[in-house]
């Protein structure tokens, strides 16, 4: 029973990460920009959040710590996502290449910054890329000794807001128009560049928060040399499986969350233990599942029609 609880907790934690990041990808792609760089954005968001958690006083109220960390993660993610915006929107660069560069850049930059800070703080003796935040992380939990945290509440709020924003508002209508038929949007006076920047910045904010949630999932310190272990790409698979729709994305995220959580808690289940699978199999599971899911769902793709294509004003 305890193991089931643990599984549920970890599932919700990882599903939160995937939901947030996949929603970010969804907003970017709905505006017409393919965001392969989510992994890098997550790392930068994690960096922003970890810096706050690692350096702020644990004496502050939990909600203040929470808000400051989320704010830092968002801002870091958004600033970093501008790299994609500038390359894809202003310079019409290959979006896959720009995104790939961002993943490498995000990781290298985070390592350099954390190491530089550690070197400076220790006078050269500590050149690790680690930040620890045991005390502050505890303040974010809703119940001590569990994984239920304020982040889950935040994810639920963001999910509902993302749905409403996309389907019920003027902004959402315009954003989707830019991803489907930018010429049509432009012909009725909508600035495609502005809407695409909005999409990319939202993906930066959500990807950043997702990164922060990831590094606080069951751990109280993070080594940036490891990055976020391909979660940015798992989120892309979740987004595709969720057909670019917020209400489906959350279901896809829960499914992937279960498999990722099994890697943490599989030893506690008798029937799984009886299978005697080696741990690496559980580690691989989310990636294998996402390959299988993609194989079944990619044929009939509901991707926004104009995604990945640089918008040129003079195109008719």
């Amino acid at each position: 029973m305890q193991q089931v609880m643990l599984l549920i907790q970890y599932t919700l934690v990882y599903a939160s990460v995937l939901t947030l990041v996949a929603l970010g990808g969804c907003y970017s792609e709905r505006s017409g920009i393919i965001n392969i760089g989510l992994e890098g954005i997550m790392v930068m968001g994690a960096l922003g959040g970890a810096l706050v958690l690692g350096h702020i006083s644990p004496e502050l109220p939990g909600i203040v710590i929470f808000l400051l960390a989320v704010l830092a993660a968002m801002v870091f993610g958004m600033i970093f996502s501008l790299l994609l915006g500038v390359a894809a929107i202003n310079f019409k660069a290959d979006q896959t290449l720009a995104g790939t560069a961002m993943n490498m850049l995000g990781l290298a930059l985070a390592i350099v910054i954390v190491k530089a800070l550690n070197i400076a703080a220790s006078g050269g003796s500590n050149n690790s890329a680690e930040i620890a935040y045991t005390a502050t992380r505890e303040k974010l939990l809703l119940a001590q000794g569990t994984e239920f945290s304020m982040f889950m509440v935040l994810t639920a709020i963001i999910l509902i807001a993302a749905y409403i924003l996309l389907y019920k508002t003027r902004f959402g209508l315009r954003l989707m128009a830019c991803g489907e038929h930018p010429q049509a949007a432009n012909s009725v006076g909508i600035s495609v560049a502005k809407m695409r920047y909005a999409g990319v910045l939202i993906s930066g904010a959500l990807g950043g928060i997702g990164g922060l949630v990831y590094i606080t999932a069951g751990v109280s310190k993070t080594n940036f040399e490891v990055g976020v272990a391909g979660f940015g790409f798992l989120a892309l698979a979740v987004m595709i499986f969720g057909q670019w729709k917020p209400h489906r994305i959350v279901l896809a995220a829960l499914l992937f969350g279960v498999f990722r959580a099994l890697a943490n808690v599989n030893s506690g289940f008798d029937f799984l233990a009886a299978l005697n699978l080696p741990q690496p199999v559980y580690n691989m599971l989310p990636y294998i599942i996402s390959l299988i899911v993609l194989a079944f769902t990619s044929k009939r793709s509901h991707a926004p029609k104009a995604e990945g294509i640089p918008y040129d004003k003079s195109t008719r």
Binding site: M176, A177, H181, A184, S187, G189, I190
Partner: peptide, 20 residues
């Protein structure tokens, strides 16, 4: 035509001048 295929007729008509 400058119409968004996944939108309804109404959404296409109001796009850009949405009453809100």
């Amino acid at each position: 035509f400058k119409l968004v295929e996944i939108f309804s007729v109404l959404d296409n008509i109001i796009l850009g001048v949405e009453p809100n």
